[in-house]
Simulated scan of single mutants.
Amino acid sequence: MTLIEAIGYLASALVLLTFCMSTMLSLRAVAICSNFAFISYGFGAGLYPVLVLHVVLLPLNIVLLVRMMILLRKAKLAAATDLSPLWMQPFMWPKHFKAGETIFRKGQHADLLYMVASGEVGLPEIDQRLSAGDLFGEIGLFSLERRRTQTAVAATNVDLLCISDAALKKLCERNPGLSLYFLRLTATRMTQNASRLPPIGAGAHSD
């Protein structure tokens, strides 16, 4: 077996290995290694279509790997500090509500996660207002019943950014480190909401 043939087998083995990767980071890293191996094999064996293909794929895989690493770093930093969700913006789409419109009601099926881009959102059950940069709707999205635990109303004209539950699940599956962010965010929000609820029996009236 020649050196070029050995490189060709190595490149093929690396492609096979990509199907065994459990995260996108490891998949991209192995894909980059396979690109280098195929470039060497294509050049040495004179297989120019293979060479051209992997010369194109190499920078693409590098860019995607770098973007994924930046995303994970931002998510981990947010999870360790202020829980800022701004890193999610590239994965979300906009929605607009006029003042007084109901965004969702308590008990409704939860299928979207929201972030306030501008304006204010009110949560009347706990007398709270959310402003630009605040994330909401995550508790219902991650609960077993998949039901909204609060009603959300546009307190002013409000611009929101949204991401579907399917897109969010896909994002977390590709990047397991993001799950830590949402776990801490949900636990923090539930603790905050519980502290705003009136004590049991408070305000009760006898007939």
Rank of each mutant, 00 (worst) to 15 (best):
S12A: 10
S12H: 14
A13F: 09
L16D: 14
L16C: 11
L16W: 14
L17G: 07
T18N: 00
T18Y: 00
T18W: 00
F19V: 13
F19R: 10
S22W: 15
S22D: 15
T23H: 05
T23R: 08
T23Q: 06
T23A: 08
L25C: 15
L25Q: 09
S26H: 12
S26F: 12
S26D: 10
L27D: 08
R28C: 08
V30H: 13
A31H: 03
A31F: 03
C33S: 15
S34W: 00
S34K: 00
N35Q: 13
F36H: 10
A37S: 07
A37R: 06
A37G: 04
F38V: 06
I39C: 02
S40V: 10
Y41S: 05
Y41I: 06
G42M: 00
F43L: 11
G44Y: 05
G44I: 05
G44W: 05
A45W: 05
Y48S: 08
Y48K: 10
Y48C: 08
Y48A: 10
V50Q: 07
L51F: 00
V52I: 12
V56D: 09
L58R: 03
L58M: 03
N61H: 03
V63M: 15
V63H: 13
L64K: 12
L64R: 14
L65A: 07
V66K: 08
M68D: 14
M69K: 12
L72T: 14
R73C: 12
K74H: 15
K74T: 10
K74C: 11
L77E: 11
L77G: 10
L83P: 02
S84K: 13
P85C: 09
P85F: 05
P85V: 09
Q89E: 14
P90D: 05
M92T: 00
W93S: 12
W93V: 14
W93P: 09
W93M: 13
P94Q: 06
P94W: 04
H96C: 14
F97H: 02
F97K: 02
G100I: 03
I103C: 01
F104W: 11
F104A: 10
K106W: 07
G107T: 03
Q108F: 07
Q108D: 09
H109D: 15
H109E: 15
D111S: 08
D111F: 06
L113Q: 01
L113S: 01
L113K: 00
Y114T: 07
Y114W: 08
M115Q: 05
V116A: 01
A117K: 09
S118E: 03
G119D: 02
E120L: 13
E120G: 13
E120Q: 12
V121A: 08
V121T: 08
P124W: 01
I126T: 04
I126N: 05
I126C: 06
D127Q: 09
Q128I: 11
Q128F: 15
R129M: 11
S131I: 12
A132V: 00
A132M: 01
D134L: 12
D134C: 09
L135I: 09
G137T: 02
E138S: 03
I139P: 09
G140F: 01
L141W: 04
F142Y: 07
S143A: 01
S143G: 00
L144Q: 11
E145V: 10
R146V: 02
R146T: 03
R147S: 07
R147M: 07
R147V: 07
R148F: 04
R148H: 04
T149S: 13
Q150F: 10
T151F: 00
T151I: 01
A152R: 01
